[in-house]
C-alpha cells in the first residue's frame, strides 16, 4: 500500500490561510489502512483545524468527507457537491489522489494534507516499513523476494557493502541489512547459487529517472 503521514497543523494552517470554507477530503483506501487519511483521521484533523481556527481567529469553516478512492474519477464524482461548496480542498489522499482531484477541478485549489512517504507494509502495529521503490523493472525473483533496490540503503545489486554490523544496516542501525536477509532467505530456499550470477548495471530508465511513467494497455482501451 501507499504509506503517508499527516503534515503538522501549523504547516496546514500556513497552506490554508486565506481560505474560508475548506473541505477536508479523506480517502478510503491506502491512507485509511496506514492511519493517515481515513474517516477517523479526517475527523481528527478537521477538529484540530476548527480548534486552531477558533484559537487563532482564522475564520475557517471546515467540512468533512471521505470517498472510497481519490485516484479514481468514479469515486471523485461522489465528492462533487461538497467540492462545489468549498473554497479549497485539503486532500488527505496520497500524492496521486491530490493530483486526481486537482485535475478534475481545475478552478478549485486542492492542497495535500499528507506527506506521501513510500510503498510499504504494516510491519507491526503502529510501524510501517518501505518494501518497494516502484523502480519499474522488478528484480525480486533474483534475490529471494527481498528487494535490494529498496531495502539496501546503497541499492547494491551484487552483494553487501561490508559495512553492516551484526545484521544491522550501517546507514540505519534500526533496520536490518538487506543483504543479510537476502543471504538467509536464499540459503533457506536452496538458491544460494543465484548469488554467483553477476547482475549487470540496472536500467533506471524504467524508474522515475526516465521521467513520469505511463502504462498503456491497448486491449483495455476503448
Amino acid at each position: 500500500m501507499i504509506v503517508a503521514e499527516r503534515k503538522s497543523i501549523p504547516e496546514l494552517l500556513e497552506i490554508l490561510k486565506g481560505h474560508h470554507r475548506i473541505l477536508v477530503l479523506g480517502c478510503g483506501t491506502c491512507v485509511t489502512v496506514c492511519l493517515a487519511g481515513g474517516e477517523r483521521e479526517v475527523s481528527i484533523i478537521a477538529s484540530a483545524l476548527r480548534i486552531a481556527s477558533r484559537v487563532q481567529g482564522l475564520g475557517f469553516e471546515i467540512d468533512e468527507l471521505v470517498i472510497e478512492r481519490q485516484c479514481d474519477n468514479i469515486f471523485i464524482e461522489q465528492a462533487a457537491e461538497a467540492i462545489r461548496k468549498c473554497d479549497a480542498v485539503l486532500s488527505l489522499g496520497c500524492g496521486a489522489g491530490v493530483q486526481a482531484i486537482a485535475e478534475r477541478y481545475p478552478q478549485k485549489p486542492v492542497y495535500a494534507g499528507l506527506d506521501t512517504a513510500f510503498l510499504g507494509i504494516l510491519e507491526e502495529r503502529g510501524i510501517w516499513t518501505e518494501k518497494c521503490a516502484a523502480c519499474g523493472s522488478c528484480v525480486l525473483h533474483k534475490y529471494g523476494g527481498i528487494c535490494p533496490v529498496t531495502r539496501c540503503a546503497k541499492h547494491l545489486l551484487n552483494g553487501p557493502c561490508g559495512g553492516s554490523r551484526e545484521d544491522r544496516c550501517e546507514v540505519r542501525s534500526d533496520r536490518p541489512c538487506a543483504w543479510q536477509l537476502i543471504y538467509t532467505r536464499l540459503k533457506g530456499i536452496g538458491q544460494l547459487d543465484k548469488l554467483k550470477q553477476i547482475e549487470p548495471p540496472k536500467n533506471w530508465g524504467s524508474s522515475l529517472s526516465g521521467g513520469p511513467r505511463v502504462i498503456v494497455r491497448e486491449d483495455h482501451r476503448i
Partner: peptide, 11 residues
C-alpha cells in the same frame, strides 16, 4: 477554551 459551538458540519 472558548470553543463552544464548534460543531462539525457534514460534507
Amino acid at each position: 477554551a472558548r470553543l463552544k459551538n464548534l460543531t462539525a458540519k457534514p460534507g
